[in-house]
């Protein structure tokens, strides 16, 4: 009984405490850098597209809202021919970012993407691609991959030996 009364009293006192509500459109929320908001495609330090069209983000997506098609340029560099995210389905779980082996796809602290027309929530590559490295600066997948995609030749990578001379039998 006493505890009930005490509860009522303590609740009553909350009338005079500071309110936690942020009055959003007038007052902006401070978001942390790892906030999972709008999805972007980033570029590598050399300005090339980071996405290599590996389809892992699409496979990881629990709502299947990512569709893309990989293609290759004349140097054998893979990139997406189209890259589409249907944000009207996206649940901002961040699995695509987790799955991305090249840091290309990233979720950024921006959630203000409301639209009156649902069709406008379908983002194509031109809408997604930003001219920045995003959260992970300095990484260029093609510098560490084994293939020659016009970024570095065979054996020119940091962790690579010069190509084998197949005509030699020396150990």
């Amino acid at each position: 009984m006493i505890s009930h009364v005490r509860t009522i009293w303590l609740t009553f006192l909350h009338l005079f405490t500071k309110k936690v509500t942020i009055e959003y459109p007038e007052e902006k929320v401070k978001l942390h850098p790892r906030w999972r908001g709008r999805i972007v495609l980033t570029k590598d330090p050399d300005g090339g597209e980071r996405c290599v069209g590996c389809y892992l983000c699409a496979a990881a997506c629990p709502v299947d809202c990512i569709a893309l098609q990989a293609t290759e340029d004349e140097n054998g560099r893979r990139y997406p021919e189209f890259f589409r995210i249907n944000f009207s389905r996206c649940i901002f779980c961040g699995f695509c970012e987790e799955a991305c082996p090249t840091y290309a796809i990233q979720l950024i602290p921006d959630f203000e993407m409301g639209e009156y027309n649902r069709q406008n929530l379908v983002f194509e590559k031109e809408d997604l691609l930003i001219n920045s490295e995003g959260k992970y600066p300095g990484y260029n997948f093609y510098k560490v991959a084994g293939i020659n995609a016009g970024v570095k030749g065979k054996g020119e990578g940091e962790q690579e030996e010069a190509p084998v001379d197949i005509h030699s039998l020396l150990p």
Binding site: D64, R84, S88, R118
Partner: peptide, 16 residues
């Protein structure tokens, strides 16, 4: 079972 892009592959034509 891991077919991807179901809700996006035709979204450019119609989001439904």
């Amino acid at each position: 079972h891991r077919y991807s892009g179901r809700t996006a592959m035709l979204a450019n034509l119609n989001v439904s």
